[in-house]
Design a protein around this nucleic acid. Structure first.
Length: 265
DNA sequence: ATGGCGCCACATTGGCGA
């Protein structure tokens, strides 16, 4: 099962690129963030023609998340239970026995912003919810734009970024709290090149200079992590004309390798 | 230090993202 997370920064603009990506990379499950579309404008038909069922929760202009899958999706839920939030940031579904959670985590803007406090509280709510979900679904994957670079090696210039939003201690502590649930950062299960990033600013020729951050992640529960055979960042999409500022991140899981246990479904 | 780019909307400028 090939799992992908991609912040497309407007699906209206990026739909042709997404369709090319689906044909070229043949993923099984794709988590899409920042569709910036209402549900009635979501391109269900085009994706179905490409072989994918889709579920979406969106709004005008901001946020919006979708799950695409070749296999049927069941138990579809939106948002974080118990968190009153108008911002459409979370959608989850069960695909081929795997619980897939797609998240567009808040940016936070700056450490003194109300949006930063919202970001930290949002992560606490996410972590609290997923603790229970992991009990119910031992095979769980959390994919998305986390808007957190977990370590200094995930930042092109750690000194310049020191203490700022996306890398602050409080944000990194929230990321570690997710790992403490038993989730693994799939990218770090394998040897990776130095300076591997998933987002580059549109400005200042940041991509050409590889001035980026690794803020898009695929976290896997223990059974899935043990069955994970590879994890990469697909920089090809970032090289295109009119690219998203994020690259797709990919993790492959060999479902045949999963051991059958009493609680494992 | 600032702004750079790209997207969106009560649009031709301003808000926001990261």
């Amino acid at each position: 099962m090939k799992l992908v997370s991609w912040n497309v920064n407007s699906l209206k603009v990026r739909l042709p690129q997404l369709l090319d990506f689906l044909a070229m990379r043949a993923p099984d499950v794709v988590c899409v963030q920042e569709t910036k579309l209402t549900d009635e404008n979501f391109p269900f038909e085009a994706l179905e023609a490409a072989g994918f069922q889709a579920v979406h929760t969106g709004q005008k202009t901001y946020n919006g998340v979708a799950l695409l899958a070749r296999a049927p999706m069941t138990e579809v839920t939106t948002g974080i239970p118990g968190l009153a939030d108008e911002q459409r940031r979370v959608i989850a579904a069960t695909v081929a026995g795997v619980r897939v959670v797609c998240a567009y985590c808040p940016n936070g803007q700056s450490l003194d912003s109300d949006k930063y406090a919202y970001k930290l509280a949002w992560f606490d709510a996410l972590t609290g919810w997923l603790a229970g979900e992991l009990q119910r679904y031992p095979r769980l994957a959390l994919l998305g734009d986390f808007n957190i670079a977990p370590e200094d090696r995930d930042v092109h210039d750690p000194e310049a970024w020191k203490g700022s939003v996306l890398v602050s201690d409080a944000e990194r502590a929230r990321f570690k709290a997710l790992l403490a649930l038993g989730l693994e950062d799939s990218f770090r299960l394998f040897e990776q090149p130095e300076k591997a990033f998933s987002w580059w600013d549109y400005r200042m020729m940041a991509f050409r200079r590889n001035h980026g951050l690794r803020i898009d992640h695929i976290l896997l529960s223990q059974p899935l992590a043990r069955a994970c055979t590879g994890a990469t960042i697909d920089r090809d999409m970032r090289r295109l004309e009119r690219p998203s500022d994020h690259a797709p991140v990919i993790a492959e899981v060999d479902l045949d390798r999963l051991q059958e246990t009493a609680v494992d479904r």
